[in-house]
Amino acid sequence: MMHEPKIIGFLCNWCSYRGADSAGMARLKYPPNIKIIRVPCSGRISPELVLRTFREGADAVMVLGCHIGDCHYSTGNHRTAKRMPVLKKLLEYTGIESERLYINWVSAAEGEKFATVIKDFTEKISALPPFVETMK
């Protein structure tokens, strides 16, 4: 059963948030499900924030940052790349679909990639049952 998933996206200020702006400037269309929260760096996102977002009823969480090597803070996103895969594994071990946590890198110039990523991901998540249902 398809549903309208609730998605929270944590986007770094310098690359991914600007990438989302680029998608807008190019008037590329994508589903409205994602609500973007701007953070300075994807490295700012702690596992607690992601888990709390799920706890609040989000069907999925996206963490998007600068490409590895292009981080505005030099290597902040390296920590994202090491922290988030572990959290994905933990979700998997707990029986939660690990694809509900999505990590990727979108540069300021990649508006098109941003729109595609959001489109594909929203579609994928809407095919999963609502998260709160699975928690009942």
Binding site: E48, L51, R52, F54, R55, V86, L90, T94, I96, M135
Partner: peptide, 12 residues
């Protein structure tokens, strides 16, 4: 409440 924040945060 589920998911158990206590146990997941602790595991992380």
């Amino acid at each position: 409440a589920k998911p158990s924040m206590y146990h997941l945060v602790r595991a992380m």
